[in-house]
Amino acid sequence: MDTDALKKEITKGQLWRSVMRHDVEDNPRTRVLKVMSNVFLHLHPVRIPRFGLYLKHTWCMGGLTFFLFLVLTVTGTLLMFYYHPTKEVAYADIKYLEFDVPFGMLLRNMHRWSAHAMIISVWLHMYRVFMTGSYKPPREFNWVVGVLLLTLTMLLSFTGYLLTDDQLGFWAVTVGTNMARATPLLGHEGPFAELTGASPYNDIRFAMLGGSVVAGNALLRAYIWHCIALPLIVAMFIAVHFWRVRKDGGISAPQ
């Protein structure tokens, strides 16, 4: 039996067709069907402007940002298997991950460097979109969604910073959240704090940390924001962002 006949036999069979739903010959019809009949690929339109392929035009930064988000979701989920968000064991869990868990160090490195890379790629994506004027009508609102995603990306990274429970994360988050003390009206060291009665035990920083200092509750809150709340919010905005790219006329190109 030659391979062509075998291939034909398989691709005409019930099993193959139940999954793929279209022929495999490369022709304009199947090129369209391949995108339209696949739930993941159909995020794309069927055709795009040729400019969308040019690296010197897109810098590939939006796509890489999304890919890094996926890498972070996978490595982050694996890290969750080895981590308890409590003051007693969090730091020991990281040590355990580094020295005992097979490929634990690699896993942690991948997560950390992907996070840094995602911050850079999301900045560069914004830079590219600005420089090509791609925020102009009809894409104004998608730019707004993009700015939200950029902010959320930095918050995701920031909440993850505390989780190692080491000096680096602890002080970085202390420095960062101390800013909240100075919030006008809502922070106990901010302007007009006496009008609202803000104190270290009821102000906006207290709400962020679940206490007046960065301690166990802050670790748990950072963990929940980092692993559940923010990823869900980001995923929702990504869906809107991608959907709007198509609804607003696809990737921008010279008209």
């Binding site: 730091y91 942690r108 911050i119 990274s157 000096q167 002080w171 970085a172 420095v175």
Partner: peptide
């Protein structure tokens, strides 16, 4: 990836810096 000593509120590093993107 860096991992410093366990968090200690009594030992303030100098300089104390936020994450690099801030």
């Amino acid at each position: 990836a860096p991992l410093e000593e366990m968090a200690n509120p009594n030992v303030t590093p100098n300089p104390s810096k936020a994450p690099w993107y801030f």
